[in-house]
Structure formats: C-alpha cells, structure tokens
C-alpha cells in the first residue's frame, strides 16, 4: 500500500520535471507538425494568407498537383534526394569506417589527427557550403586546378552550372561534413570489441581481412546500423548546404525535397503546396525513424 503510493508520487515527480520541456516541444514542434498536415489539405497562398475566411479545404488536390505534372519537380526532387542521400552515406560510411579502423589504433599524434578532423562536422553548414562553392568555382576554383594538374580533366569544368556535376559537388561537400560523424560513432563501436577476441583470432591464424569481416563487423553491427539510419535521417533533410551552393539549380538538377518545399512556401508563397511537399519529406523520414527507434529498443533490451 505504502509502496504503491510512493511509486505514483515518484511518477508524478518525474512527469512534473519533464513537463516544461515537453510542453515547449509540443507548442513549437508538435503543434506546427499537425498544423502543417492540415495546411497541406487547404488552399492557403499569398492572397488568402491573412484572411482565414477565404481558406478552404481542398482535399488531396495539392498532393495530386505536385505529382501529376509530367515534368513534376516534386518527383524529380524525391529522386534527387534519394540519390544525394545514398551517395553521401555510401562514401561517408566507407571513408568513416576506414578512418575509424586507422584512428582506433595507437600511434604518435593519433588522437590529435582524429580530434582535429572533427571540425568539419561542427562548422556552420552555411560557411562550409560557401567554401565548397568556391572550391568548385569555374574560374579560380581549386578543384579544377588540381584535377587538371593530375591530368584527370583537360579544361576547367563548370561544376555548379551543369546538372550532373553540380550533384557531384554537393555530394562531395556533404561527404566532407559527414565523415567525422561516421568516424566517431564507429570508433566508439570499435572500443566495445574485447581485445582478447582479436588475440584468439590471431592465434587461430585468421588474416586481417578475415578478422574484419568475421569478427569486427558482426560485433559492432549495432553501431553500424545506428550510423546508417541516423545518417540517412540527417542527410535526407539537408537544406542549408544545397541552398547555399546551388539553390537547387541549375534547372532543378539538385532540387531536394527540402529546398523545393522552401521555394514553394517562401518564393512562390504557395504555403499549402509547400506544406504538402514538406509532408512527403516527413513521411519518408518517419518510416526510417521508426526503424531507428525499433533498433535502439532492441539494443536496450539486450543491455
């Protein structure tokens, strides 16, 4: 009896402590999320923005319009976002993994190199984007100069002015930003591998590659899955980098769902259509997010 009472009062305390933050997030994230959902089924634009009497529900008209156009920018931006995300993650992960294997070893200046390379992840993305815009500039850009001195290209490439090369440029920039994130999480994962497993593998005559594929990777699989799903979520919603480097151009070649939603709302002032395309972004992230949450739950149960 006493015990039960104690529990419920403890529960109340816990709830009370968390309430301010929960309410704040409900007001400034929860409510906008729901209201974005509702907005996407209305016809709000710059003309009836201030007069709610003129705003009507139009069902799925916004979604239908976004997707039905034969040259649908919406479809293109979903494809672009997938391409951008998959390429970014693929390289970030591979490079991050190799660096994690290297920097988890002990050698002179190892922790200094590892620490210093974190900076790219911390920089304001706006500045990183401008930096890469300059690196890939047609004239004066160092990317062209380096590739030409290596004889990989014959004349300067207009990186940001051609669709395909612009996509390459934003992916390269995003990889640079994301490497430290992958590396650090994988290093943390690697520290969980007990040293004696490696020793017994060595005694059993396992080679380096065998050890990597049959011991290291299976043991740190939870860390790998976290890195990949979190990486997907964070990359899929990238906005600043692309907005600064290409603004989605040239001619929508690097248009992502995020930049398209922004343009619809704040350049064309089609608020409801902007809301609808942001919802598409949300839907895809939501599915991946659920996957991630199931993943952590499994991990917690194991622990």
């Amino acid at each position: 009896m006493d015990h039960k009472k104690k529990l419920s009062s403890a529960g109340k305390m816990g709830l009370l402590f968390s309430l301010p933050a929960v309410i704040y997030m409900l007001v400034f994230v929860g409510y906008p999320t729901i209201s974005n959902f509702i907005l996407s089924f209305k016809n709000v634009d710059v003309f009836n923005f201030a007069r709610s009497a003129d705003q009507q529900f139009v069902g799925i008209a916004n979604y239908r319009e976004l997707f039905s156009d034969p040259n649908s920018v919406m479809l293109k931006s979903v494809g672009n976002t997938l391409l951008f995300t998959v390429c970014s993650i693929f390289f970030q992960f591979i490079i991050g993994f190799i660096l994690a294997l290297l920097f988890s070893k002990r050698f002179p200046a190892s922790s200094f190199f590892r620490g210093a390379s974190m900076i790219s992840w911390l920089l304001p993305v706006t500045v990183a984007g401008l930096l890469f815009k300059f690196i890939f500039a047609s004239s004066g850009g160092i990317a062209n100069q380096m590739l030409m001195s290596l004889h990989l290209i014959k004349k300067p490439v207009d990186w940001l002015l051609n669709g395909n090369t612009a996509m390459v440029a934003i992916i390269v920039a995003n990889i640079w930003i994301g490497i430290p994130f992958n590396m650090m999480l994988l290093i943390t994962g690697l520290t969980t591998v007990p040293a004696d497993i490696y020793e017994s593998a060595k005694i059993d005559g396992a080679g380096k590659l065998q050890t990597l594929f049959y011991i290291t990777i299976p043991v740190i699989k939870p860390a790998i899955m976290s890195v990949l799903t979190l990486g997907f979520v964070y990359t899929f919603k990238v906005f600043d980098l692309v907005w600064v480097m290409t603004k989605g151009g040239p001619i929508n070649a690097t248009e992502l769902v995020s930049t398209y939603a922004y343009k619809l709302s704040f350049e064309e002032f089609e608020f409801s259509k902007g809301a609808a395309s942001a919802n598409i972004l949300f839907l895809i992230l939501f599915i991946v997010g659920l996957f991630y949450i199931r993943l952590i739950n499994q991990e917690e149960e194991v622990m």
Binding site: S18, A21, V22, M25, F28, V29, G30, Y31, P32, T33, S35, N36, L39, F49, V233, F236, K237, F239, V257, S258, A261, Y262, S265, F266, F271, G274, A275, A278, N279, L281, F282, L285, G289, Y292, I293, I296
Partner: peptide
Amino acid sequence: LLILFFLMTQMLPSTLILTPLYIM
C-alpha cells in the same frame, strides 16, 4: 513514450515546421 517523443522531434526536418511557425 516521452523519451520516444524527444527522439522523434530530434529527427524532424526544419522545413516541416517552418511554414506553420512562420504563420504563427
């Protein structure tokens, strides 16, 4: 549920809440 709530909000894109926040 509350822990999940914070995890989910961390993953939401800014673009999703931008238009409603602007109106608000």
